[in-house]
Every structure is written in C-alpha cells, then in structure tokens.
C-alpha cells in the first residue's frame, strides 16, 4: 500500500441537513396524491385503462369502495353530485378521514379529536357503517 495520502487543507465542511423524516414522508405523500389526482383527472375509469375491483371481479358484488375511481374522476372534474352517485359513503367520509389524518399527524394539538377517532367505539361504528353500506348498496343498487 502506498503511503497514506495527507488530507486537503480544511476550509470548513458542509453538513448535509436531511429533511426530518416526517417532512419527507409528507412530501412523498403529497407527490403520490398529486400523481393519483392527475392520473384520475386524465383517465376516465369507463375507458378500461384503470384497474378493476378485485372483490367485484371475484364475487360480482359491489365492495364498499366500488365507484371510487369513477367518483374521483367526477369530483376532479367538479361534478360532486355525480361523485356522490358513484359512491355516497366515500364522498361523505372524506371530511372525516381528513380530520382523522390531521389528528394522527398532530396528536398534541388535536389530542381531543384523536382520543375520539382512536377509540374502539368510534372505529367499530365506522366499520359497522362500512358493512351496512355495503349490504345496502348491493340490495338496493342506485
């Protein structure tokens, strides 16, 4: 081995400051959300270029989320009424999901909200609504 090289003159070193993980995760999530919105703005689910529901493919029944792609496409084109027609539950739960996400991200500031949204009765009620909605939409298709 050759004699070890000597270090260059020190002119100060730059410390790379990585983004904090939370901010990085938020940035990634924002990019994914924008990409999804762009895709669903441009692509019409009726065109057959988007994936179909595996539950519906397997059983022929509407799952709780069926219509979500058509609803997102309609909502992005400003037609909330049509979106609600494709999947009423999804449109109705968007504000609730937003509040839950905010409570999850800011547990200190929204501690009271989080105590409710993380509680067992709330979660089981939500689950019951999803199941009842699924039964209803299959028995009484709009």
């Amino acid at each position: 081995m050759s004699p070890a090289a000597s270090p260059p003159p020190y002119r100060g070193a730059v410390r790379r400051r990585p983004w904090p993980p939370r901010r990085r995760a938020a940035a990634v999530a924002l990019c994914v959300a924008l990409a999804v919105c762009a895709a669903y703005y441009l692509l019409d689910p009726a065109g057959g270029m988007l994936p179909r529901c595996p539950f519906k493919a397997a059983t022929g029944l509407d799952c709780p989320g069926c219509g979500a792609q058509r609803a997102l496409h309609a909502a992005l084109h400003g037609d909330l009424r049509a979106a609600a027609g494709y999947n009423l539950l999804l449109v109705a739960e968007v504000p609730v999901l937003g509040l839950m996400l905010a409570a999850e991200l800011m547990p200190r500031r929204l501690g009271r909200v989080r105590r409710v949204t993380a509680s067992r009765p709330f979660i089981l009620t939500f689950l019951a609504i999803i199941i009842l909605w699924t039964i209803y939409r299959n028995l009484c298709p709009a």
Binding site: P54, C63, I130
Partner: peptide, 9 residues
C-alpha cells in the same frame, strides 16, 4: 379505511 375502500376489503 382507505385500503378497505380502495382495493382490498
């Protein structure tokens, strides 16, 4: 919930 309504009940 998003997983439930997006793909995988």
């Amino acid at each position: 919930i998003l997983a439930t309504v997006c793909c995988c009940v």
